[in-house]
Deep mutational scan, measured.
Amino acid sequence: TIDDAFRAIERAIQAENEGRYREALKHFLDGGEMIVTAAEKEASQKVRNLLLHKGKEVLEWAEHLAEWILE
């Protein structure tokens, strides 16, 4: 659900702030994927587009974090 997705993102932010970057990455990926999944089930085109945009933002952040971890 969207609530689960945002809880995962909150955990990711907390982990990132505490320097637990790999854990943060996992939570960002989980949250982003949950948002995209919820968007695919959404009946309203406007809400679907907003959710897809937010999911994409979260997944892009996860990608940047992963690249930073690997440096």
Rank of each mutant, 00 (worst) to 15 (best):
T1A: 10
T1N: 11
T1P: 08
T1S: 11
T1C: 10
I2M: 07
D3C: 14
D3V: 12
D4W: 07
D4Q: 08
D4R: 09
D4Y: 06
A5L: 06
A5S: 02
A5P: 02
R7N: 07
R7E: 06
A8K: 10
A8S: 06
A8Q: 09
I9R: 03
A12Q: 00
Q14R: 08
Q14V: 10
Q14K: 12
A15S: 04
A15L: 13
A15W: 03
E16N: 13
E16W: 15
E18N: 08
G19T: 04
G19C: 12
R20M: 05
R20K: 07
Y21T: 02
R22T: 12
R22A: 09
E23H: 02
A24T: 01
L25W: 06
L25H: 03
L25P: 00
K26C: 14
H27N: 06
F28V: 04
L29S: 02
L29C: 10
D30E: 14
G31T: 05
G31F: 15
G31S: 04
G32F: 15
G32S: 11
E33V: 12
E33M: 14
E33N: 15
M34Y: 06
I35E: 03
I35H: 03
I35M: 14
V36P: 01
V36Q: 06
V36L: 15
A38S: 09
A38I: 14
E40C: 15
E40M: 15
K41G: 11
E42Q: 08
E42K: 03
A43N: 12
A43Y: 06
S44I: 07
S44Q: 08
Q45T: 10
K46G: 10
K46L: 12
V47C: 12
V47Q: 05
R48K: 11
R48E: 05
N49S: 10
N49A: 02
L50P: 02
L50D: 12
L50T: 09
L51T: 00
L52C: 14
L52I: 08
H53M: 14
K54E: 03
K54T: 11
G55F: 14
K56F: 09
K56L: 12
K56D: 02
K56C: 13
E57V: 11
E57G: 04
E57A: 10
E57M: 15
E57P: 00
V58L: 11
L59A: 05
L59G: 01
W61F: 05
W61C: 08
A62M: 09
A62P: 00
E63P: 00
E63W: 12
L65T: 00
A66G: 04
A66F: 09
E67D: 12
E67R: 14
W68Q: 09
W68E: 03
W68S: 05
I69V: 05
L70R: 14
L70F: 05
